[in-house]
Computed example of a mutant assay.
Amino acid sequence: MDTHERPMAGRTVLVTGATSGIGRATAVALAAMGAHVAVAGRDRTRTEDTVREIRAASGEKADMFVADLSSLGQVRLLAEEALAALPRLDVLVNNVGGYWNTRHVTVDGLEHTFALNHLAPFLLTNLVLDRMTQSGTPARVVTVASNAEALGRIDFDDLQGERNYSGARAYNQSKLANVLFTYELARRLRTTAVTANAVHPGMVSTSFGAEDPAGVQRLLVPLLRPFMRSPKAGAATSIHVASAPDLEDVTGLYFANRQAKRSSERGYDEPTAARLWRASAELVGLGTYRAPSR
């Protein structure tokens, strides 16, 4: 195959939440495009299944890491293992995420939705940024958000939903946080060769939210499933933003249907983004941010 058929040849990609749905489809497709893919999932058997599918579809070996990214300790362990195993990292796809209708608390005492959907990609990205700048070629951070961000609001007085929890409110807040994080990251990386973009995959038929679904999900999802996108179709925008040659220098944007779109106006609120960054850094135990060395 030539470089047109394998445009990701020589690139190394880490995909989180890669054991099913959009994440798995993203990992398999990028491997088929020639990338060396590393996958992270919380279930060892399902992660091994993803690695076998990558091998069957592309003939490529894949690295695998097992970690529950709702735990800050396991996010740090994933970063350590990935840095030890991967001499370079060209693309990080922050795909992991979930929805819980009732409030759950992680091992760190954090609200589960906020911890997994926002704090995990925030911490992991910061921990691997130095490696990404050292790859010798431009690198990319792709964070899977959702158009639910348009309904989100960052409640700094109740980030953990301790006083007033709603599954939908927590999810919408976390997706807005993904967008704010992406735009702020792009601003902070403007002197580097690393880009940061967010994507909306669309309504995809997966097991998303199945652990603790809302009543409306139980009623509507079976009716809507025939009209939902397949995981492969849902992964198309993530794959495009991770690999398209013409996006090499494109940063700080929100993509849907493989096209750059405007996110909600709240996503462009720079003071809120900066405040969220500080609050997130404190929650995950990061010191003062510094731009990674080039």
Rank of each mutant, 00 (worst) to 15 (best):
A40L: 02
E53A: 04
A35W: 02
T50A: 11
V66A: 03
R42D: 07
R76M: 04
I54H: 05
G10L: 00
A56H: 10
S58Y: 02
L69E: 11
T50C: 13
A9Q: 08
L89E: 13
R76F: 03
G34C: 03
R46N: 05
G34P: 07
A38N: 03
A18S: 07
I22K: 06
M64D: 06
G17Y: 03
G23Y: 03
A79L: 05
I22T: 09
Q74S: 09
L89T: 08
G17M: 12
T12S: 10
A9K: 09
A29D: 03
A85D: 10
V15N: 08
A38F: 10
M33R: 10
M33E: 11
L30A: 09
T12H: 11
A32K: 12
T47H: 11
A32M: 12
R24Y: 06
E48H: 09
R55L: 04
S58E: 01
G41D: 09
V93A: 03
V37K: 12
M8T: 00
F65V: 08
R52P: 06
R76L: 10
S58N: 01
R24C: 00
V37Y: 11
H36V: 00
E60H: 14
R88H: 10
V66P: 11
A32C: 12
S70L: 04
S20V: 01
M64Y: 12
V93F: 09
E81Y: 03
E5A: 13
M8W: 02
V28E: 14
V51M: 00
L30I: 05
D43V: 12
G10Y: 00
E53P: 06
T47G: 15
A32N: 07
L83H: 08
A29H: 05
T50Y: 15
R42E: 13
P87H: 11
A40R: 04
A25N: 08
T16D: 02
L83P: 05
G10R: 00
F65W: 05
K61M: 09
A25T: 06
L86N: 03
T26R: 13
L83D: 15
S20A: 10
L89R: 01
A67Y: 03
T12R: 14
S20I: 01
V51R: 15
V51K: 10
D68R: 05
L30E: 12
R24F: 10
R76P: 07
A35G: 08
V91M: 02
T45I: 08
E48A: 11
S71K: 15
A67L: 02
G73E: 15
R44P: 07
V75C: 07
F65E: 00
E80Y: 04
D49I: 02
T45R: 15
A56M: 13
L69V: 06
L86P: 04
D49K: 14
S70N: 12
V75P: 04
E5H: 09
L14A: 10
